[in-house]
Each structure stands twice: as structure tokens, then as C-alpha cells.
Nucleic acid binder design. Sequence first.
DNA 1: ATTAGGG
DNA 2: CCCTAAT
Length: 755
Amino acid sequence: MVLQKRLDYGFNGYQVPTIPRATRSARKRVPFRKRVEGNRISAFDLLATVAGTLLLDKESSPASNNAWNAEDQSAVEKNNVKEERQDGDQSLKLETCNVSELVPQTNDPNYSSRESPSLQNGTQFGVTSAITTSERLDYQKLINGKIKNEMGGLACKVETGPFVSRTPDDCVEPVSENKVLTDEELDRTNKASSGEVADKCPLEDPLVLDGKPPAVVSSDSSIKAPSFGEHDPFISFPIQQYDVNVVSRDDDEKSSGCTHPSPIREPFRSTPRIGDRRIRKILASRYWKVALRSKNATYSNYDENLKSGYCNRSTYKRLRSGRNFPFKKRKFLHYTSESNSDGGTIGEGISDLPEKNINGKASILYSKMHGVTGEPSSLADQRKSFNSRDPHVKLRIKSFRVPELFIEIPESATVGSLKRTVKEAVTAILGGGLCVGVLLQGKKVRDDNKTLLQTGISRDNQMDSLGFSLEPNPSHTSPSLCPGGSPLTLPHDIPLPLASLGEEANFLSDNSILIHEAAWFKCMELVSPGKLSIKSYFGYCADSVYDLILFLARYPANPGLVNQVTCHPSTDPCIPNACDFIESNNDCTASPTDMFDKSTTESKALVAVPAMSVETLAAVPVHKKSKQSEVAQRRIRRPFSISEVEALVQAVEKLGTGRWRDVKLRAFDNAKHRTYVDLKDKWKTLLHTARISPQQRRGEPVPQELLDRVLNAHTYWSQQQAKQQQQQLPESCLPHYNSTMIGSGRCDDDENILG
DNA sequence: ATTAGGG
DNA sequence: CCCTAAT
């Protein structure tokens, strides 16, 4: 993974934290008991948890990936199951909206399970292929977002398949293909998939978790904020992404060549919860690793799965030809931003197009592009003969990813009004808020005046590297790296311009970059589109700008993401992690689940932390500390520099001890990460350091001169304090006690202190 | 929100 | 640097 923990603890025996922590100022000051009791953790902690997960994701070797992942996944699954059962909450959550639901028709009898030994054998079958066989009914229900248990059964079956298991014996027995699952069986399989079995069965297929959208949605507790529903007349629908995908249902992730995971498209997915999404992303890398093993990358996953499931190619071919596709030959011209899938199609003729999805709606945008000069070309013809060219470039783009939306609608609103609202929102975005970007070989084609021929889009060898993206209208959103969400179009072999990070992107002294937690939130898609006002930082940094970009690009939940990653080089070399806070200008309406304390609205993070997501994600880190996860994480350690000590000593000399707020304001007002508690603690430490012998001191040595001043200041102000108390309590204090205290001080240094 | 102090 | 209690 991209990010690395920057600093470790090791300070006075403090435990080395796996994740950093927000600064005190940004943390919610809630009574401890209340915090523990609440079924939530702070957004920072949640983020930290996720961050830790990602780190683990990186640090885990491929061989060991499955190990921890299986455990975590099992925990996650378990939580999911538990949540779904215990949670009768029917709150609404509209997280994903498939603008065009693309469903393959599989009427071909060849797709029966009987002829699908690979499925029964549990061979490398993803959800898609499984569905296209015997699970058609379930599939349909899945699409329609209906029945949870069936979903669970499906998901379970896929999960526990040998696809992720070396030996089928390790896993729970596959659910019979055509059998209607009973509740008991579902329960059993759910358990198996979630816990007992999962430990033995590494789950590699990220799609697995997608297999429970409808039920999950309805029972999604992420929206189940305390204030939600009964008290809050509004329901917020975070429509976070629109997986509007390109042609057919191939969930093909592999052929982009990118080694980084990306959001998986799920054509049949309805509305998974946030947590699932996150998990899916985590698992995406595994999925890829599997997928990348496929030899022939020109086929889609679907085909891959089919192929791998059959012993010989003839069988595969038969099945392939039997697919219920209206065209016989397909040349995949366009690859979506997310994947290589058959986004555009160069067919043999327009007659092939457009095809329709099962809803009977044209699911594609068919556009013809004309070459202006020279000889336009058609890929199909080009392959036949370079001499006779069709002057048209035929593209077929089935779907686009649409940026995040957020909708708020009264609880009393009708479904119809909800539909209209969503439609309006989508229409508004598609109407004016977006523009289309063209990517060729991962690079944006910015010159709109170039012809396709000039650009090379019409060339045969460029067809498979052409991509489109929906981008926010520049007038609405500041330029960002990955506006439309095109993670896979980022070529990992092409250096990306640093300008992608904007003017504020700077290196730290060690050539690393700090990632602001707001960006983390965005990256994780865990942030609710509310107002972010985060004044703290995380001590994670990317190894390089490129890594950072890649990382961010993989999570294009928010077009403005990159802009929220502001990195400031520390002005003090001793404070390598110093960075400013960033305030999001996200102006969306906050979700009811935004529950951070707004007494002070300024320095609080208003981030929704869905209870379900919290619980789910909390189980992700290595140590399954479902309970302990509520414990906040430590901040990153930031040793005081000499100059800071100097400033502290000077301020205390002037103001005295016990006025840490004033000290803060006077000397550390600009250091957002230094709270007055920190200063107080540092003074305490300094005092202790000054009193012990130099041999006992550790860390960066503090000049003796400063330590002397610390002692003197402490003595002086102790005397002052005593004097004041003596004055305020003239009779109650014993005279000899105060005189003793005064006598212990070196009053002759007082003038120096104050001077 | 601050301060003080133990951990 | 964390946590809590007391202001």
C-alpha cells in the first residue's frame, strides 16, 4: 500500500500505536464513560482503524494476505450478520444508484448448473458467473433488491467456494445450486461464511460482500443515528457513487494492468453499505491477484471464469457462443475508467448496436465520432484492411461513474417524490455539473481541437487504451486529479505531474507527503458528505507523490479529494509532521448521523460514523478487539524541538506556570498540534529532565541553559504562587511552611527570569 | 474549556 | 501523550 506509518512511539514505555490519532483539539471531549457506552467511535478513530487496515494491507505479504484477511473478513462478516439480525431498523439508505442496470440475459440452457461443473466444483467462479448459471432467480431478486436471505445464501456459496480455498474440505459444503435455501440453512451458511469457516477459507473475492445489498440496505444501521428517524424529520440519502458501467456485465478488473485495487463494479449490486464497500475495496487487491493470473487478458472476467472452469477450449467456446448476446463478435474498444470492461464497442456494423439490457432500455450511449481530417478509421475495418477504412470511429459507452450525490428528503416524502428527487439530482449533475474527459493510455487528452486521428484514438492499437470519465464541471469544482473516478486509468508506469496535487502539495523533509485525515476520510468513502472541519492531522504519509496520487485516485469518492490533501513542509526540521489543518469546503448537507459535538462547531469533525460501519471496521484490524476498538487511538508523537522548548520556557518565564492556555496562545498559537495540555506536559517533562542527571536523560539533549531556566522559572513561580496563597489565606496557612518554600527558591534569579 | 496531576 | 477530576 501506499501509506506508511511515519513515526513510532517508544516514548516512556508508551505502547507503539498502530494508528495515529487526532489532536486533542479536534477530538470530541466527551466523558469517558459516555464514549465507551456509545456505539460509536470518533471519526478519527474510525479513520485510524481504516488506516491501519490499509497499512496492514500493504505490509502483508501476498502469502500472508489471506491469513489476516480471512480473519478480518470473517469478523466483518460476522458483524454484518449479527447486525442484520439484531437490527430491525428499517431506515433508508440510498448509497448507490445504478443509472443503468446492466444485466446479462442467460436464457441459454447451456448455462444450467449441470453444465457448469466448474461451479459445482467450486472452481474459480465469481458471483457473476455463479449467478448466470443456476442462480438466475436469485440474481434477479438481487437485482431488484429484494430478499436478504437469498442474498446471503448466494454470497455464502460463492464465498465458501474453492475459489478461495485450497481444499474444498476446509470449507463449508457448497449450497446446492437450485435448491431453495431454508432459513436454517441460510443461517448455517451465513455463519459458516462469516466465522467458523472463513478462518480457514481466505476470502478473495471482493464481490462476495456485494451479495447482500438489498437486505443490507434496509437494515443498514449506518443511518441509524440516535437522532435519526424519530427525532429527525429528514432522512439523508448519501448516494455515494453511481456505478454506471459500460456494456455487458463483465466485472473485469484485471486487464487494466494496474496493480492497485480499485472500486469494483457490481452491475447487479444494489446498495451495499459503506462498510461493505470498504471491505470490498480492501479485498479488491486479492481479487486482482487472482484475476491477474489469467493468461488471456483479452477476455473478460466472465469469459475468464468460464474458461477456467472448463477443461478444454471447445467447451468454453460453445458456452461462449451460446451467450445470449445479440452480437457475435465484439471488439472492445473502450475501457472504462474503472476497468477494461467492454465500455465501447467497435462492432462490425451499427446494426449490432445498441443492445439492450433486460430492462429493455438502451443501456448505452452510442456516439459517433468523426475524424476531421485524413482517413478516419474503423477498428473493424482496419483489421480487415488498412486500405478500406470506415471513416467513423464507433464508440459505445455503456455507463459512466457519476460523482457523489447527497440527497435530503423529508421522512414523510413519498417514494415517488424520492424518485423524482434522485432523478433531479442526477439530471442536474449530468446536465451541467459534469464534463467528459477522454483518456488515452491513461493520459488525459486535453486538447479538444485535435482530431481523433491526430490523437491516435482512431488507431487500432490505441483502442484498448481509450477511456472516458465524467468530470465535475470546472466551474463547480476545483480541478482534481481524478474527478470522474478513474482509478485504473492511472498508469502506474507514467510519472504523474506533481501539479496534480495542486500548489499546496509539498514535500516534507524526507520527501514524503502528509496526508490529511480529511483526505483519508474521503479516500475511504467513509465520510458523510457533510461539512468537514478537521483541525488535526494524521501522521501517515505516502512514500511519494505518485503513490499518494495513486492512492487517492483509487478512492475518487469526492472529486475534491485531492484538493483536501494539503501538505505543508514543516518550518521546523524537528517537527517533520507539522502540517496545517484543512477545512473542507464541502457544502453538502450533513447527515443526521453527523453527530459530533457542535458546541464548538469550528474545531469539530462533523463526520458520520455509522454504527454498523464502525463495528464492522473495528473488527478489521489485526487484533480482533471489537470492544477495545472503541478506545481512541493515540496521537502521533511529536517531540518538542529545541526551538519549541525555547519558546515554551520563555513563555512560562513570562506568564508563569499554571497559565497554559495563555502560554499556548502566546507561543504556540500557530502550532495547531500543540495543545495547552501538551505544553503543560512538556513543562513537566522538562522539569523532570532538569532535575535528573544528564546521564539519565534521553532523547535529543536539551541545552543545559534551557534546563536551568526551567528550574529557575519553576522555582520563581512556585514562590509567587505560594505568596499569593499566603495573601489569600492569611490565617489558615502556617507561616513557617511558606517561609520554607520561599527559602528553597533562589530569589536572586528572579530578575533574570522576568527580564 | 482549563487546570492539575497521575499514569 | 493519555486520562480523569475538579474547576
